[in-house]
Write a protein that binds this DNA or RNA. Structure first.
Lengths: 228, 228
DNA sequence: GTAAAAGTTACCAAAAGGTTAACACCTTTT
DNA sequence: AAAAGGTGTTAACCTTTTGGTAACTTTTAC
């Protein structure tokens, strides 16, 4: 995404601050909108759907924290980035602000360089961020990262093919539990798919080769289990 | 377990971070302790026995990974949950950290929502490990784990073939109750299967060999029962 | 004492799983 | 476009485990 496509909303009651920020951000190519108080800020946020909102904490009538809370509860704006503008001394507001859902702080007096680097950092996050808590499974020396489709065994990073990964993830999700062959087929292959009688075995074989022979126990007539 | 009963230790050299984390966790009701460096962290961990430790990776003197390794080797803290605080980019440390025994990662900059959901997820693990109702049957010195298809008799672990396991599980499910031969056939073999007249006897014989002669009483003309 | 029921043992066939190689089918690289 | 490589599956063959039976002995109940 280019800077020209990025919308930033500034909310502050001091026209000087608005002007300084606006100038600096505009000259980097960002689309800049402004609002003079919290209420107007909320209104413009809804209408313009900005990517980033820079909110002064101290404002008459509706302060930044209150505005932030409203924005966070507004549909379509839950994931909008919000940075607070605050005087360095106002320590209390930092805490309260993070609680309200702030993503970062910009302290006054504003240094253009710092401002721009913070904005860039925040927008970088916008691109990469997935808010879902990471899906990590750890069993002994084995770490399975479902999000990254990656396995670390004894500190060694492995990339497994999908079926092997899913089979491993299933078995390791409950160490020691025996998973019946039918359950494995259901969870890894899906209930409609029909595969031969040796298919699971072959995949187990590959996992034993890669992760270690002794981690996969066979329970004859039932299925397999993962043990540490 | 209520939040008031849960102890969380924060270890970071930056007072700001400690304050933000502390504020957010306290307001959820958790008991929060803090330490300013790795050494102090290890010390407080030993004294306070927290349920969860949030450790900054980058700290002067003793870093988080070193502290983690020490904690993992400390008696009584082997099962404490440990989460690392790390900058998103430091990918290498993820590998090293998991190797050192970390349970999860929290990336900076810290979003209170993400932090709290991660903490909740981790603590959910703590709870489910403790009070998950496992499929375990205990009869005297005999422990039958249906989920793991495993039997422990007098502390000795046995792996029984399926038919023997199921026969034992059936009889032990109601100690002293006599199971008629027809009932045993029905439950263990299934109603369609036809087997010879000595089949059950042979399996009982094998169980007597493995579990102990005197636990299996014959009731002539009726069936068998398991007694302690 | 006798017949029915259960115990015992050894043996065997079937079942289950292990192993390997080959194959179609993709995807990526050249 | 061809070559190379990866993936998922199957077929064929091998090994081990298992479940069951036959044949015989012992115990129990009447």
């Amino acid at each position: 995404m280019k800077n020209q496509d990025i919308k930033i909303l500034l909310v502050d009651d001091e026209p000087d601050i608005l002007e300084i920020l606006s100038y600096n951000l505009s000259s980097e190519g960002y689309q800049v909108f402004t609002a003079k108080n919290g209420a107007e800020g909320v209104d413009k946020a809804t209408k313009k759907q900005p990517h980033l909102i820079i909110l002064d904490v101290m404002m008459p009538e509706m302060d930044g924290i209150e505005a932030c809370e409203i924005i966070r509860r507004t549909k379509g704006l839950e994931d909008t980035l919000i940075a607070f503008l605050t005087a360095r001394s106002e320590d209390y507001s930092q805490v309260a602000g993070f609680d309200a859902g702030a993503d970062d702080y910009i302290t006054k007096p504003i240094k253009p360089k710092v401002l721009l680097s913070k904005v860039k950092a925040l927008l970088r996050r916008l691109r990469s961020e997935q808010d879902a808590p990471e899906d990590i499974l750890k069993v002994g020396k084995l770490v399975i990262n479902r999000e990254q489709y990656k396995v670390i065994n004894n500190g060694e990073e492995l990339i497994l093919p999908r079926k092997e990964f899913e089979l491993l993830a299933l078995l390791a999700s409950k160490p020691d539990k025996v998973f019946k062959r039918e359950v494995i087929l259901d969870k890894v292959w899906g209930q409609e798919v029909v595969v031969g009688g040796r298919t699971i075995d072959v995949h187990i074989r590959k996992l034993r080769e890669k992760i270690g022979e002794n981690h996969f126990k066979t329970v004859k007539g039932v299925g397999y289990k993962y043990v540490q």
